[in-house]
């Protein structure tokens, strides 16, 4: 057991423990905060595995942006402060499938790698990863930028109530009694 192993064990235990709390806690807001702990521990894992850039991007995007978005959603859906009892459904199937997937993967990976050691590669600094992305992976990078744009447009269209409604001919308000046809069209 080297120092790296001890560190990996420690941050791994923190990540799994926080993950357990994310899926079992009764408090909506606390689930988001435990998610911060879990993702931060994973960023530590990445650092120990010498993936510097991925670790900092994880902190920036996951801990900084995604969790804040999730907490916004919790607040916007008027989540109760305090414990709520209706968050779970009775879940033996969930425990069975989730436990089966987790333990199955564990057995598979332990069987594949046993207790062997590998040498850590050179650190994945921004310079080296940038060289790889802009030499070998340019096309996926560009496709991802298009995908981000379409996700942005899709999110805007989804959340604007006045876009994407049926036109005057197909408006269900036209068939409702009490609403005259002229005002039942597009607003």
């Amino acid at each position: 057991m080297t120092g790296a192993d001890v560190l990996l064990l420690a941050v791994g235990a923190v990540a799994v423990g926080a993950g357990v709390l994310v899926v079992t806690t009764k408090h909506l807001v606390r689930a988001g905060l435990y998610l911060v702990v879990c993702l931060g521990a994973l960023a530590g894992d990445f650092l120990v595995l010498s993936a510097e850039l991925v670790a900092w991007v994880q902190v920036l995007i996951y801990v900084g942006a995604v969790v804040v978005l999730l907490l916004f959603a919790v607040m916007l859906t008027r989540a109760p402060i305090g414990a709520s009892d209706d968050l779970d459904r009775p879940g033996w199937p969930a425990a069975l499938i989730g436990g089966g997937a987790g333990l199955g993967l564990t057995v598979l990976l332990v069987d594949a790698y046993r207790w062997g050691t590998v040498a850590l590669p050179r650190a994945g600094t921004a310079e080296r990863l940038g060289e790889q992305i802009f030499q070998s992976w340019v096309l996926p990078f560009e496709v991802l930028s298009v995908l981000l744009l379409s996700a942005l447009v899709g999110a805007i269209v989804l959340s604007r109530p006045d876009i994407g409604r049926p036109g005057p001919g197909a408006d269900p308000a036209a068939e409702r009694p009490g609403v005259d046809v002229e005002t039942g069209g597009r607003r």
Binding site: V16, G19, C38, A94, G98, L105, T106, L109
Partner: peptide, 21 residues
């Protein structure tokens, strides 16, 4: 560095995610 430690961490986290979904 023993790769089995982060691999097992990842496997357990994936199982937890499936359970949560």
């Amino acid at each position: 560095m023993r790769p089995v430690i982060p691999y097992v961490t990842a496997a357990l986290l994936f199982g937890l995610g499936v359970y949560g979904v």
